[in-house]
Design a protein around this nucleic acid. Structure first.
Lengths: 229, 229
DNA sequence: TCAAAAGTGTTAGTGTTACACCCATGA
DNA sequence: TCATGGGTGTAACACTAACACTTTTGA
Protein backbone atom coordinates (compact mmCIF):
# COMPACT_ATOMS: atom_id res chain seq x y z
CA UNK A 1 0.00 0.00 0.00
CA UNK A 2 2.14 2.85 -1.20
CA UNK A 3 0.76 6.30 -0.60
CA UNK A 4 2.17 8.65 -3.19
CA UNK A 5 0.62 11.84 -1.90
CA UNK A 6 3.43 13.43 0.04
CA UNK A 7 6.49 11.56 -1.16
CA UNK A 8 8.30 14.63 -2.44
CA UNK A 9 8.62 16.00 1.08
CA UNK A 10 11.29 15.19 3.62
CA UNK A 11 10.85 13.00 6.64
CA UNK A 12 12.17 13.61 10.12
CA UNK A 13 13.07 11.81 13.30
CA UNK A 14 10.50 12.52 15.97
CA UNK A 15 11.36 11.92 19.60
CA UNK A 16 9.16 12.08 22.66
CA UNK A 17 10.59 13.38 25.93
CA UNK A 18 8.78 13.13 29.24
CA UNK A 19 9.03 15.55 32.13
CA UNK A 20 7.95 13.45 35.10
CA UNK A 21 6.89 15.27 38.24
CA UNK A 22 6.46 13.63 41.61
CA UNK A 23 5.71 14.91 45.10
CA UNK A 24 7.22 13.36 48.20
CA UNK A 25 5.12 15.13 50.89
CA UNK A 26 7.70 17.85 50.99
CA UNK A 27 8.80 19.03 47.58
CA UNK A 28 8.39 18.53 43.86
CA UNK A 29 10.84 16.13 42.26
CA UNK A 30 11.66 15.27 38.70
CA UNK A 31 12.58 11.81 37.53
CA UNK A 32 15.85 11.82 35.60
CA UNK A 33 18.45 9.34 34.47
CA UNK A 34 21.91 9.31 33.02
CA UNK A 35 21.71 8.97 29.29
CA UNK A 36 23.15 5.67 28.06
CA UNK A 37 23.59 6.27 24.36
CA UNK A 38 25.40 8.64 22.09
CA UNK A 39 25.46 11.51 21.63
CA UNK A 40 25.68 13.05 25.12
CA UNK A 41 25.96 9.66 26.80
CA UNK A 42 26.33 10.05 30.54
CA UNK A 43 24.55 13.39 30.81
CA UNK A 44 21.46 13.91 32.95
CA UNK A 45 18.43 13.48 30.78
CA UNK A 46 14.70 13.29 30.69
CA UNK A 47 13.17 9.99 29.65
CA UNK A 48 12.70 9.89 25.94
CA UNK A 49 12.44 7.70 22.92
CA UNK A 50 11.55 7.76 19.28
CA UNK A 51 8.17 7.75 17.67
CA UNK A 52 7.64 4.55 15.70
CA UNK A 53 6.17 4.08 12.29
CA UNK A 54 2.59 3.20 13.19
CA UNK A 55 2.30 4.65 16.62
CA UNK A 56 0.10 7.48 17.77
CA UNK A 57 2.00 10.28 19.45
CA UNK A 58 0.16 9.88 22.75
CA UNK A 59 0.74 6.18 22.69
CA UNK A 60 4.43 6.71 22.16
CA UNK A 61 4.54 8.91 25.24
CA UNK A 62 2.73 6.26 27.25
CA UNK A 63 4.96 3.51 25.93
CA UNK A 64 8.16 5.38 26.68
CA UNK A 65 6.97 6.23 30.15
CA UNK A 66 5.97 2.65 30.78
CA UNK A 67 9.06 0.90 29.47
CA UNK A 68 11.49 3.23 31.15
CA UNK A 69 9.78 3.66 34.50
CA UNK A 70 7.10 1.01 34.88
CA UNK A 71 4.44 3.69 35.39
CA UNK A 72 1.15 3.26 33.61
CA UNK A 73 -2.22 4.93 33.71
CA UNK A 74 -0.76 8.18 34.93
CA UNK A 75 -1.57 11.74 33.98
CA UNK A 76 0.20 12.59 30.76
CA UNK A 77 -0.23 15.76 28.75
CA UNK A 78 1.44 17.07 25.65
CA UNK A 79 3.50 20.14 26.39
CA UNK A 80 5.27 21.53 23.34
CA UNK A 81 7.21 20.51 20.26
CA UNK A 82 10.82 21.54 19.94
CA UNK A 83 11.88 21.72 16.35
CA UNK A 84 15.07 23.70 15.94
CA UNK A 85 17.48 22.13 13.52
CA UNK A 86 20.42 22.57 15.91
CA UNK A 87 18.82 21.18 19.02
CA UNK A 88 20.55 17.80 18.67
CA UNK A 89 23.53 16.52 16.69
CA UNK A 90 21.21 15.12 14.11
CA UNK A 91 17.95 16.78 13.18
CA UNK A 92 15.35 15.44 15.60
CA UNK A 93 12.05 16.99 16.55
CA UNK A 94 11.03 16.42 20.12
CA UNK A 95 7.50 16.40 21.36
CA UNK A 96 7.62 17.00 25.10
CA UNK A 97 5.03 15.52 27.44
CA UNK A 98 4.68 16.06 31.10
CA UNK A 99 3.57 13.42 33.56
CA UNK A 100 2.27 13.66 37.11
CA UNK A 101 3.02 10.71 39.33
CA UNK A 102 1.55 9.64 42.61
CA UNK A 103 4.82 8.56 44.19
CA UNK A 104 3.05 6.62 46.89
CA UNK A 105 1.63 4.29 44.30
CA UNK A 106 4.94 4.12 42.49
CA UNK A 107 7.34 4.50 45.35
CA UNK A 108 10.04 2.64 43.51
CA UNK A 109 10.71 2.55 39.84
CA UNK A 110 10.08 -1.04 38.81
CA UNK A 111 11.03 -2.92 35.73
CA UNK A 112 12.45 0.14 34.08
CA UNK A 113 15.66 2.06 34.15
CA UNK A 114 17.24 1.34 37.50
CA UNK A 115 19.37 4.42 37.30
CA UNK A 116 16.27 6.57 37.44
CA UNK A 117 16.42 9.04 40.31
CA UNK A 118 14.01 11.55 41.75
CA UNK A 119 15.75 14.89 41.92
CA UNK A 120 14.27 17.87 43.74
CA UNK A 121 13.27 20.68 41.46
CA UNK A 122 15.50 23.11 43.32
CA UNK A 123 18.55 20.95 42.84
CA UNK A 124 18.18 20.33 39.16
CA UNK A 125 21.56 19.60 37.55
CA UNK A 126 22.49 20.60 34.05
CA UNK A 127 20.53 18.58 31.56
CA UNK A 128 21.37 17.29 28.14
CA UNK A 129 20.24 19.15 25.00
CA UNK A 130 17.33 21.52 25.59
CA UNK A 131 15.85 19.43 28.38
CA UNK A 132 16.12 22.18 30.96
CA UNK A 133 14.07 24.46 28.78
CA UNK A 134 11.47 21.73 28.62
CA UNK A 135 11.42 21.34 32.38
CA UNK A 136 10.93 25.05 32.85
CA UNK A 137 8.07 25.11 30.41
CA UNK A 138 6.51 22.10 32.08
CA UNK A 139 6.75 23.80 35.44
CA UNK A 140 5.04 26.92 34.13
CA UNK A 141 2.30 24.74 32.68
CA UNK A 142 1.92 22.84 35.93
CA UNK A 143 1.59 26.11 37.83
CA UNK A 144 -0.99 27.48 35.48
CA UNK A 145 -3.06 24.33 35.30
CA UNK A 146 -2.92 23.45 38.98
CA UNK A 147 -4.86 26.64 39.67
CA UNK A 148 -7.62 26.02 37.15
CA UNK A 149 -7.94 22.27 36.91
CA UNK A 150 -7.81 19.60 39.57
CA UNK A 151 -4.58 18.07 38.34
CA UNK A 152 -2.77 18.48 41.64
CA UNK A 153 -4.54 15.38 42.92
CA UNK A 154 -2.62 13.31 40.39
CA UNK A 155 0.43 13.91 42.53
CA UNK A 156 -1.20 12.59 45.69
CA UNK A 157 -2.53 9.22 46.77
CA UNK A 158 -6.26 8.76 46.51
CA UNK A 159 -6.73 9.65 50.16
CA UNK A 160 -4.88 12.66 51.43
CA UNK A 161 -5.06 15.18 54.24
CA UNK A 162 -5.58 18.90 53.81
CA UNK A 163 -2.18 19.76 55.28
CA UNK A 164 -0.58 17.54 52.65
CA UNK A 165 -2.63 19.08 49.88
CA UNK A 166 -1.56 22.49 51.05
CA UNK A 167 2.09 21.42 51.15
CA UNK A 168 1.70 20.24 47.59
CA UNK A 169 0.36 23.56 46.37
CA UNK A 170 3.04 25.38 48.30
CA UNK A 171 5.67 23.22 46.64
CA UNK A 172 4.20 23.86 43.21
CA UNK A 173 4.10 27.61 43.65
CA UNK A 174 7.15 27.95 45.87
CA UNK A 175 5.32 30.06 48.46
CA UNK A 176 3.41 29.57 51.65
CA UNK A 177 -0.34 29.97 52.01
CA UNK A 178 -2.51 30.78 54.96
CA UNK A 179 -3.94 27.59 56.42
CA UNK A 180 -7.43 28.92 57.05
CA UNK A 181 -7.78 30.64 53.71
CA UNK A 182 -6.52 27.61 51.87
CA UNK A 183 -9.01 25.29 53.57
CA UNK A 184 -11.84 27.71 53.11
CA UNK A 185 -11.24 28.03 49.40
CA UNK A 186 -10.61 24.42 48.61
CA UNK A 187 -13.51 23.16 50.71
CA UNK A 188 -15.89 25.79 49.37
CA UNK A 189 -15.68 24.19 45.95
CA UNK A 190 -17.37 21.13 47.42
CA UNK A 191 -15.10 18.78 45.51
CA UNK A 192 -13.48 17.06 48.48
CA UNK A 193 -15.23 14.28 50.34
CA UNK A 194 -14.21 14.12 53.98
CA UNK A 195 -13.63 10.57 55.19
CA UNK A 196 -13.96 9.23 58.70
CA UNK A 197 -10.36 8.09 58.73
CA UNK A 198 -7.45 10.02 60.03
CA UNK A 199 -3.86 9.89 58.96
CA UNK A 200 -1.68 10.00 62.02
CA UNK A 201 1.63 9.82 60.24
CA UNK A 202 2.11 13.56 60.30
CA UNK A 203 1.09 14.39 63.86
CA UNK A 204 -0.12 12.94 67.14
CA UNK A 205 -3.56 14.36 66.67
CA UNK A 206 -3.91 13.06 63.14
CA UNK A 207 -5.50 14.81 60.20
CA UNK A 208 -8.69 13.78 58.45
CA UNK A 209 -8.36 12.14 55.08
CA UNK A 210 -10.19 13.48 52.06
CA UNK A 211 -10.89 12.16 48.62
CA UNK A 212 -11.34 14.15 45.41
CA UNK A 213 -14.91 13.77 44.17
CA UNK A 214 -14.58 13.29 40.44
CA UNK A 215 -18.31 12.78 39.91
CA UNK A 216 -19.16 16.10 41.45
CA UNK A 217 -16.40 17.74 39.44
CA UNK A 218 -17.87 16.42 36.19
CA UNK A 219 -21.27 17.72 37.25
CA UNK A 220 -19.86 21.16 37.95
CA UNK A 221 -18.05 21.14 34.63
CA UNK A 222 -21.23 20.45 32.74
CA UNK A 223 -22.84 23.38 34.57
CA UNK A 224 -20.05 25.59 33.30
CA UNK A 225 -18.31 25.79 36.65
CA UNK A 226 -15.14 24.10 37.65
CA UNK A 227 -12.04 24.10 39.76
CA UNK A 228 -10.53 27.49 40.57
CA UNK A 229 -7.98 27.96 43.27
CA UNK B 1 28.45 14.19 7.00
CA UNK B 2 26.48 11.15 7.97
CA UNK B 3 25.15 11.04 11.47
CA UNK B 4 24.74 7.44 12.53
CA UNK B 5 23.22 8.07 15.94
CA UNK B 6 19.57 7.56 15.34
CA UNK B 7 19.45 5.75 12.04
CA UNK B 8 17.64 2.70 13.32
CA UNK B 9 14.54 4.77 14.06
CA UNK B 10 11.79 5.69 11.65
CA UNK B 11 11.25 9.07 10.10
CA UNK B 12 7.99 10.88 9.60
CA UNK B 13 6.38 13.55 7.52
CA UNK B 14 5.86 16.68 9.57
CA UNK B 15 3.38 19.28 8.42
CA UNK B 16 2.67 22.72 9.79
CA UNK B 17 -0.87 24.07 9.77
CA UNK B 18 -1.76 27.65 10.57
CA UNK B 19 -4.96 28.89 12.17
CA UNK B 20 -5.09 32.52 11.10
CA UNK B 21 -7.36 34.84 13.05
CA UNK B 22 -8.36 38.29 11.91
CA UNK B 23 -10.75 40.92 13.23
CA UNK B 24 -12.79 43.14 10.93
CA UNK B 25 -14.14 45.64 13.51
CA UNK B 26 -17.12 43.42 14.00
CA UNK B 27 -16.23 39.77 14.38
CA UNK B 28 -13.42 37.25 14.42
CA UNK B 29 -12.64 35.65 11.07
CA UNK B 30 -10.47 32.77 10.03
CA UNK B 31 -8.52 32.67 6.82
CA UNK B 32 -9.24 29.51 4.85
CA UNK B 33 -8.80 28.23 1.34
CA UNK B 34 -9.93 25.35 -0.80
CA UNK B 35 -7.30 22.68 -0.78
CA UNK B 36 -5.72 22.19 -4.21
CA UNK B 37 -3.98 18.85 -3.88
CA UNK B 38 -4.83 15.29 -3.07
CA UNK B 39 -6.02 13.87 -0.82
CA UNK B 40 -9.12 15.90 0.08
CA UNK B 41 -8.62 18.30 -2.81
CA UNK B 42 -11.40 20.89 -2.90
CA UNK B 43 -12.18 20.78 0.81
CA UNK B 44 -11.96 23.83 3.06
CA UNK B 45 -8.61 23.83 4.72
CA UNK B 46 -6.23 25.73 6.92
CA UNK B 47 -3.01 26.90 5.36
CA UNK B 48 -0.36 24.29 5.70
CA UNK B 49 2.79 22.86 4.30
CA UNK B 50 5.58 20.47 5.06
CA UNK B 51 8.60 20.95 7.25
CA UNK B 52 11.76 20.87 5.17
CA UNK B 53 15.02 19.14 5.88
CA UNK B 54 17.01 21.97 7.39
CA UNK B 55 14.29 24.26 8.55
CA UNK B 56 13.41 25.22 12.11
CA UNK B 57 9.83 24.54 13.02
CA UNK B 58 9.04 28.18 13.74
CA UNK B 59 10.63 29.21 10.48
CA UNK B 60 8.52 26.71 8.62
CA UNK B 61 5.39 28.24 10.13
CA UNK B 62 6.55 31.71 9.12
CA UNK B 63 7.48 30.56 5.64
CA UNK B 64 4.16 28.84 5.06
CA UNK B 65 2.26 31.83 6.31
CA UNK B 66 4.28 34.16 4.14
CA UNK B 67 4.18 32.21 0.89
CA UNK B 68 0.49 31.42 1.11
CA UNK B 69 -0.81 34.74 2.38
CA UNK B 70 1.89 37.38 1.97
CA UNK B 71 1.78 38.13 5.71
CA UNK B 72 5.06 38.58 7.51
CA UNK B 73 6.13 39.75 10.93
CA UNK B 74 2.84 38.75 12.49
CA UNK B 75 2.09 37.12 15.80
CA UNK B 76 2.62 33.39 15.48
CA UNK B 77 2.52 30.87 18.30
CA UNK B 78 2.83 27.12 18.39
CA UNK B 79 -0.43 25.52 19.46
CA UNK B 80 -0.27 21.73 19.55
CA UNK B 81 1.03 18.74 17.66
CA UNK B 82 -1.41 16.28 16.20
CA UNK B 83 0.12 12.88 15.82
CA UNK B 84 -2.50 10.21 15.40
CA UNK B 85 -1.63 7.67 12.75
CA UNK B 86 -5.07 7.87 11.16
CA UNK B 87 -5.35 11.64 10.96
CA UNK B 88 -4.45 11.73 7.25
CA UNK B 89 -4.33 9.17 4.46
CA UNK B 90 -0.64 8.83 4.94
CA UNK B 91 1.04 9.14 8.32
CA UNK B 92 1.74 12.84 8.82
CA UNK B 93 2.30 14.69 12.06
CA UNK B 94 0.95 18.19 12.09
CA UNK B 95 2.27 20.96 14.26
CA UNK B 96 -0.45 23.58 14.48
CA UNK B 97 0.36 27.27 14.86
CA UNK B 98 -2.00 30.11 15.33
CA UNK B 99 -1.53 33.56 13.88
CA UNK B 100 -3.11 36.89 14.75
CA UNK B 101 -3.44 39.31 11.89
CA UNK B 102 -4.06 43.02 11.85
CA UNK B 103 -6.42 42.99 8.90
CA UNK B 104 -6.06 46.72 8.39
CA UNK B 105 -2.41 46.26 7.54
CA UNK B 106 -3.16 43.24 5.42
CA UNK B 107 -6.57 44.14 4.10
CA UNK B 108 -6.05 42.02 1.04
CA UNK B 109 -4.11 38.85 0.69
CA UNK B 110 -1.27 39.68 -1.67
CA UNK B 111 1.05 37.47 -3.60
CA UNK B 112 -0.34 34.37 -2.02
CA UNK B 113 -3.24 32.08 -2.55
CA UNK B 114 -5.92 34.15 -4.25
CA UNK B 115 -8.62 31.77 -3.17
CA UNK B 116 -7.96 32.67 0.45
CA UNK B 117 -11.11 33.91 2.15
CA UNK B 118 -11.86 35.34 5.54
CA UNK B 119 -14.70 33.35 7.04
CA UNK B 120 -16.49 34.44 10.21
CA UNK B 121 -15.90 32.12 13.11
CA UNK B 122 -19.63 31.55 13.51
CA UNK B 123 -20.02 30.42 9.93
CA UNK B 124 -17.18 27.96 9.86
CA UNK B 125 -17.80 25.29 7.22
CA UNK B 126 -16.67 21.70 7.55
CA UNK B 127 -12.92 21.49 7.33
CA UNK B 128 -10.63 18.87 5.95
CA UNK B 129 -8.94 16.32 8.25
CA UNK B 130 -8.80 17.38 11.90
CA UNK B 131 -8.60 21.07 11.07
CA UNK B 132 -11.78 21.93 12.93
CA UNK B 133 -10.37 20.43 16.09
CA UNK B 134 -7.34 22.64 15.60
CA UNK B 135 -9.48 25.73 15.16
CA UNK B 136 -11.37 24.98 18.34
CA UNK B 137 -8.20 24.51 20.29
CA UNK B 138 -6.78 27.71 18.87
CA UNK B 139 -9.88 29.58 19.89
CA UNK B 140 -9.66 28.28 23.45
CA UNK B 141 -6.03 29.35 23.53
CA UNK B 142 -6.85 32.78 22.16
CA UNK B 143 -9.52 33.23 24.82
CA UNK B 144 -7.22 32.20 27.61
CA UNK B 145 -4.29 34.26 26.46
CA UNK B 146 -6.20 37.39 25.54
CA UNK B 147 -7.12 37.73 29.20
CA UNK B 148 -3.62 37.39 30.56
CA UNK B 149 -1.34 38.75 27.87
CA UNK B 150 -1.73 41.73 25.58
CA UNK B 151 -2.08 39.69 22.43
CA UNK B 152 -5.41 41.19 21.46
CA UNK B 153 -3.60 44.23 20.11
CA UNK B 154 -2.08 42.04 17.41
CA UNK B 155 -5.53 41.95 15.87
CA UNK B 156 -5.86 45.73 15.74
CA UNK B 157 -4.02 48.47 13.90
CA UNK B 158 -1.41 50.31 15.91
CA UNK B 159 -3.84 53.08 16.72
CA UNK B 160 -7.28 52.05 17.85
CA UNK B 161 -10.21 53.42 19.79
CA UNK B 162 -11.54 51.98 23.01
CA UNK B 163 -14.91 51.11 21.50
CA UNK B 164 -13.09 49.04 18.88
CA UNK B 165 -10.95 47.35 21.47
CA UNK B 166 -14.04 46.47 23.42
CA UNK B 167 -15.72 45.11 20.28
CA UNK B 168 -12.67 42.94 19.77
CA UNK B 169 -12.83 41.46 23.24
CA UNK B 170 -16.54 40.95 22.89
CA UNK B 171 -15.93 39.10 19.64
CA UNK B 172 -13.25 36.92 21.22
CA UNK B 173 -15.41 35.95 24.16
CA UNK B 174 -18.78 36.01 22.42
CA UNK B 175 -20.38 38.19 25.07
CA UNK B 176 -20.99 41.85 25.74
CA UNK B 177 -19.20 43.88 28.39
CA UNK B 178 -20.18 46.98 30.27
CA UNK B 179 -18.59 50.00 28.61
CA UNK B 180 -17.62 51.78 31.80
CA UNK B 181 -16.20 48.73 33.53
CA UNK B 182 -14.25 47.77 30.45
CA UNK B 183 -12.64 51.19 30.12
CA UNK B 184 -11.91 51.40 33.79
CA UNK B 185 -10.14 48.07 33.85
CA UNK B 186 -8.16 48.45 30.69
CA UNK B 187 -7.11 52.03 31.44
CA UNK B 188 -6.22 51.22 35.04
CA UNK B 189 -3.39 49.03 33.84
CA UNK B 190 -1.73 52.14 32.44
CA UNK B 191 -0.68 50.37 29.27
CA UNK B 192 -2.60 52.49 26.78
CA UNK B 193 -1.31 55.84 25.63
CA UNK B 194 -4.09 58.22 24.71
CA UNK B 195 -3.36 60.15 21.54
CA UNK B 196 -4.66 63.57 20.54
CA UNK B 197 -6.24 62.20 17.39
CA UNK B 198 -9.76 61.03 17.02
CA UNK B 199 -11.16 58.41 14.72
CA UNK B 200 -14.40 59.67 13.29
CA UNK B 201 -15.19 56.66 11.17
CA UNK B 202 -17.43 55.11 13.81
CA UNK B 203 -19.45 58.12 14.91
CA UNK B 204 -20.00 61.82 14.36
CA UNK B 205 -18.44 62.66 17.68
CA UNK B 206 -15.37 60.59 17.05
CA UNK B 207 -13.49 58.43 19.53
CA UNK B 208 -9.98 59.06 20.80
CA UNK B 209 -7.24 56.85 19.46
CA UNK B 210 -4.94 54.93 21.78
CA UNK B 211 -1.71 53.07 21.35
CA UNK B 212 -0.47 50.08 23.30
CA UNK B 213 2.60 51.05 25.30
CA UNK B 214 4.98 48.15 24.89
CA UNK B 215 7.78 49.82 26.85
CA UNK B 216 5.63 50.23 29.91
CA UNK B 217 4.40 46.66 29.54
CA UNK B 218 7.96 45.34 29.57
CA UNK B 219 8.66 47.42 32.67
CA UNK B 220 5.65 45.99 34.44
CA UNK B 221 6.63 42.48 33.42
CA UNK B 222 10.05 42.85 34.95
CA UNK B 223 8.38 44.04 38.16
CA UNK B 224 6.37 40.82 38.16
CA UNK B 225 3.15 42.50 37.12
CA UNK B 226 1.52 42.30 33.78
CA UNK B 227 -1.64 42.37 31.75
CA UNK B 228 -4.75 41.02 33.38
CA UNK B 229 -8.20 41.66 32.03
C1' DT C 1 -32.82 69.31 15.92
C1' DC C 2 -32.09 64.82 16.34
C1' DA C 3 -30.00 60.35 15.90
C1' DA C 4 -25.95 57.84 17.05
C1' DA C 5 -21.99 56.69 19.29
C1' DA C 6 -18.50 58.47 22.99
C1' DG C 7 -17.60 59.38 27.37
C1' DT C 8 -18.08 59.57 32.50
C1' DG C 9 -18.92 57.84 38.77
C1' DT C 10 -21.10 55.72 42.35
C1' DT C 11 -22.83 52.03 45.06
C1' DA C 12 -23.79 47.34 46.63
C1' DG C 13 -22.09 43.06 46.79
C1' DT C 14 -18.67 39.61 46.50
C1' DG C 15 -14.34 37.68 47.22
C1' DT C 16 -9.69 38.13 49.28
C1' DT C 17 -6.44 38.76 52.77
C1' DA C 18 -4.66 39.07 57.28
C1' DC C 19 -4.60 37.46 61.65
C1' DA C 20 -4.46 34.19 66.89
C1' DC C 21 -6.06 30.82 69.64
C1' DC C 22 -7.73 26.11 71.22
C1' DC C 23 -7.54 20.95 70.38
C1' DA C 24 -5.97 16.20 70.45
C1' DT C 25 -2.45 13.15 71.11
C1' DG C 26 1.89 10.37 71.85
C1' DA C 27 6.11 10.64 73.82
C1' DT D 1 2.81 17.83 80.77
C1' DC D 2 4.35 19.52 76.90
C1' DA D 3 5.62 19.83 72.14
C1' DT D 4 3.66 19.18 67.67
C1' DG D 5 0.84 19.73 64.09
C1' DG D 6 -4.58 20.04 63.21
C1' DG D 7 -8.35 22.67 63.21
C1' DT D 8 -11.39 26.92 63.44
C1' DG D 9 -13.90 32.58 62.54
C1' DT D 10 -13.96 37.42 61.75
C1' DA D 11 -13.08 42.02 60.17
C1' DA D 12 -10.80 45.28 56.86
C1' DC D 13 -10.04 45.77 52.33
C1' DA D 14 -9.99 45.31 47.29
C1' DC D 15 -12.27 44.15 43.39
C1' DT D 16 -16.31 43.34 40.55
C1' DA D 17 -20.74 44.21 38.70
C1' DA D 18 -24.65 46.85 37.98
C1' DC D 19 -26.54 50.90 36.56
C1' DA D 20 -28.17 56.23 33.47
C1' DC D 21 -27.21 60.40 31.87
C1' DT D 22 -24.51 64.10 29.22
C1' DT D 23 -21.63 65.32 25.17
C1' DT D 24 -20.46 65.98 20.43
C1' DT D 25 -21.39 66.36 15.83
C1' DG D 26 -22.89 65.47 10.94
C1' DA D 27 -26.81 64.87 8.43
Amino acid sequence: MSMPFYSKHSKHYVAVDCIIFGFDQEKINILLHKRKFEPYSGGWSLFGGFLEENENLNNAAGRILHTLTGFSGVYLEQLFTYGDVERDKERVLSVAYFALINTERYSSVEGGDFDAVWIPLEELPDLVLDHKIMVNKALRRLRRKAASEPIGFELLPEKFTLPRLQKLYEAIYGEGFDKRNFRKKILSMGLLKKLDEKDKSGSKKGAFLFRFDKKKYDELLSEGLGFEL
